[in-house]
Nucleic acid binder design. Sequence first.
DNA 1: AATAGTCGCAACCGCCAACAT
DNA 2: TATGTTGGCGGTTGCGACTAT
Length: 288
Amino acid sequence: MGRSPCCVKEGLNRGAWTVYEDQILIDYITTHGDGKWKELPKKAGLNRCGKSCRLRWLNYLRPGIKRGNISAEEEELIMRLHRLLGNRWSLIAGRLPGRTDNEIKNYWNTSLSKKLRAGDQTPEKQVVINKSKGKKMVEAAGNSALSTLSSKVSQEPPRVIRTKAVRCTRVFFPPQQGSECHHVDETMINKREEPALASSSSGFNCTPSTLSSIIQADGDYSNFLTDLDIGELLSMPDFLQFCSEGIDHQENDNVIMDGEDLPWFSDYPFSAPYEIMLPESTDDRCNT
DNA sequence: AATAGTCGCAACCGCCAACAT
DNA sequence: TATGTTGGCGGTTGCGACTAT
């Protein structure tokens, strides 16, 4: 299938946005809302690619964007989430209110990756195969600056979830005792403006008190990340402990590097049993 | 003060899944 | 079902700011 360019590139402004362009974009989206990015520049009177408008809005102009330094708590959370999710920046950003995927990605590439490399002298090293690109990412553990994380990490075999770029529109939460199956639109998950995704739409309410039960329920970790923000996470001793210890307890550890002998669900963004994502039917897997 | 090297971040690019027709 | 369009994601690049020499 042919692919048309997102816009006619000739004659469009590129590079840094001016204050004037920003204001036009803000005014237009404030009035008309976002979306329809391809048409937006023309309607708004911007000489920009629609993609560029979208990026500028989402990463810089959107209300609620938190600028400034990443706090130590946020950094630790990024580390933990990255360990669980891999380079799935949008998902990680979804757990950090006010932060954008681009910002977190930049922060990781510039700051955290160096910290990790600084600990490369340790014998333990994590090699994560990104199969979609055929590239290797090397992560080191045991950095003193990340001691709270690395003290445990350095003793573990690699456990980073494969980061194959797939997307699912629905998430299936395995039924808890006394509850029903819940399908949640993934688009809801990524909306940080809606912090209580699962609780509002599915009846789950992941509070500190319920976290333990979720984690301990037959190794079902499928819910614990879905509706948490940093404040909630950091108020949960269970979460911190779980991230460094809890996953050790699984007998059937399918999160491995090379994809061999993986069950079918290993191609999902969250490898089960951390987060089980099922299509509506078993023939409709989103791993192609 | 001048220059080179490094860093941090905004923006771009290409790919892909979802959606529309 | 096939094809075209749109939106979103992750990787990469370019450039200004900062630091070291």
